[in-house]
Nucleic acid binder design. Structure first.
Length: 277
DNA sequence: CAAATCCCCTGCAGGC
DNA sequence: TGCCTGCAGGGGATTT
C-alpha cells in the first residue's frame, strides 16, 4: 500500500478535505481534519507494521490504519470548478458508491485519495509535530526485520501459541492472520505449538518464512480475499498462491492431506497436520 | 505479567 | 424468498 501510494501522494498538496460522519474511526475528530490538513504538502509516506504515516510540510503527521476492511485508493478529480467540485462537498445522503467514505483528500494536480472502510475498524489520527501515539509506541520491530533471535527472546518465557506471538504487534509489527498461517506452513511449524517450545532451527525457519511470505505478498500486491484493494483500485493476487489460509478441507499442496482449521488465540487458523510439526 | 474475553461495525454466505 | 446465525484479513480495554 505504501509503495503504491507514495508516488501519488508524496510531493502533492492537500487542497480539500471531506470527512464522513463522526465515528470512532476518527481518533481525531473529523471536523478538525480539514483545518489541519488543507494547504499542507505530503513530504513522505512511511510505514511501521500495519500503520501508514504521512509526513506533512508543517511537521505534523497523519496516522492511518486500514483495520480489516479499510481501503485507500486514488481517483481522478476533483476537477476545477463545476460538477466534481460540488460532489466533493458534504452531502448528507451519500450515494451508494460513496458509502463508507470516511476521509477524502483532494490533491493539487487533480487526484483524490479516498479512505473507505465498511466496518470502521480502520483509524485516522492527526499528530502534531513531535507528537506520538501510544499505538505506535507499543509496536515491536517491523516484521520485515524479523530475526530468529528476536522471536527467541520474545518467546522465551511465553506459553502462548507461536501463532499468537507472531500476531502480537508489540513483538513484531505487521504480521496479520493470513500471513501468520502461511509463514507457519512454510516453516513446517504447527500454529498451536507453545512459543517457548521452538528449537533454534525452527525459529530460524520461521523467521525466514515470515520475511519471504511478506516480501512475496508485497510483490503480488497483497491478498484480496474480500475487501483489500490497491491505491489504483486493483486487487492483489497473493490469495491465489496461499497454501493454507482459507483452504480448510482442501489438499495440502505438499503432501496432499487435508488442511485443518481451528481457532487458535481467537483467530481462525489453518495448517497441515502432516507437514507442520 | 500473560492470556482470555468481549467489544467495536457491516456485509455476506449458508442453513432452515 | 426471507429470516437468522455465524463469521470475517484488526486491535483495544478489561478481566482473570
Amino acid at each position: 500500500m505504501r509503495r503504491g501510494l507514495a508516488p501519488v501522494l508524496v510531493g502533492r498538496r492537500i487542497t480539500r478535505v471531506v470527512t464522513g460522519p463522526p465515528s470512532y474511526f476518527f481518533l481525531t475528530p473529523p471536523e478538525q481534519l480539514a483545518p489541519r490538513l488543507e494547504g499542507r504538502c505530503v513530504e513522505a509516506l512511511e510505514r511501521h507494521g500495519k500503520y501508514l504515516l504521512a509526513e506533512l510540510s508543517d511537521g505534523a503527521r497523519l496516522l492511518l490504519h486500514l483495520g480489516m476492511t479499510g481501503q485507500l485508493f486514488v481517483e481522478a478529480g476533483p476537477e476545477r470548478g463545476g460538477r466534481a467540485r460540488r460532489r466533493l462537498r458534504a452531502e448528507p445522503p451519500p450515494s451508494a458508491r460513496e458509502r463508507h467514505h470516511h476521509l477524502t483528500l483532494g490533491l493539487r494536480g487533480g487526484l483524490t485519495l479516498v479512505f473507505r472502510d465498511v466496518r470502521k475498524f480502520g483509524k485516522v489520527r492527526w499528530l502534531a509535530p513531535g507528537q506520538s501515539d501510544p499505538r505506535l509506541d507499543k509496536l515491536g520491530p517491523d516484521a520485515l526485520d524479523v530475526s530468529a533471535a528476536l522471536l527467541q527472546a520474545a518467546g522465551r518465557r511465553r506459553k502462548c501459541a507461536i501463532k499468537s506471538l507472531l500476531l502480537d504487534q508489540s513483538v513484531l509489527a505487521g504480521v496479520g492472520n493470513i500471513y501468520a498461517d502461511e509463514a507457519l506452513y512454510l516453516a513446517a511449524v504447527r500454529p498451536m505449538r507453545s512459543a517457548q517450545s521452538l528449537r533454534g532451527r525452527e525459529l530460524e525457519a520461521l523467521s525466514q518464512a515470515v520475511r519471504s511470505v511478506l516480501l512475496r505478498a508485497i510483490e503480488l500486491g497483497g491478498s484480496s480475499i474480500s475487501d483489500y484493494v490497491h491505491p489504483d483500485g486493483g486487487r492483489g493476487s497473493y490469495q491465489l498462491e496461499r497454501h493454507v489460509y482459507g483452504r480448510a478441507g482442501q489438499p495440502c499442496q505438499r503432501c496432499g492431506g487435508p488442511v485443518e482449521r481451528a481457532v487458535v488465540g481467537q483467530r481462525s487458523t489453518h495448517w497441515c497436520p502432516r507437514c507442520q510439526r
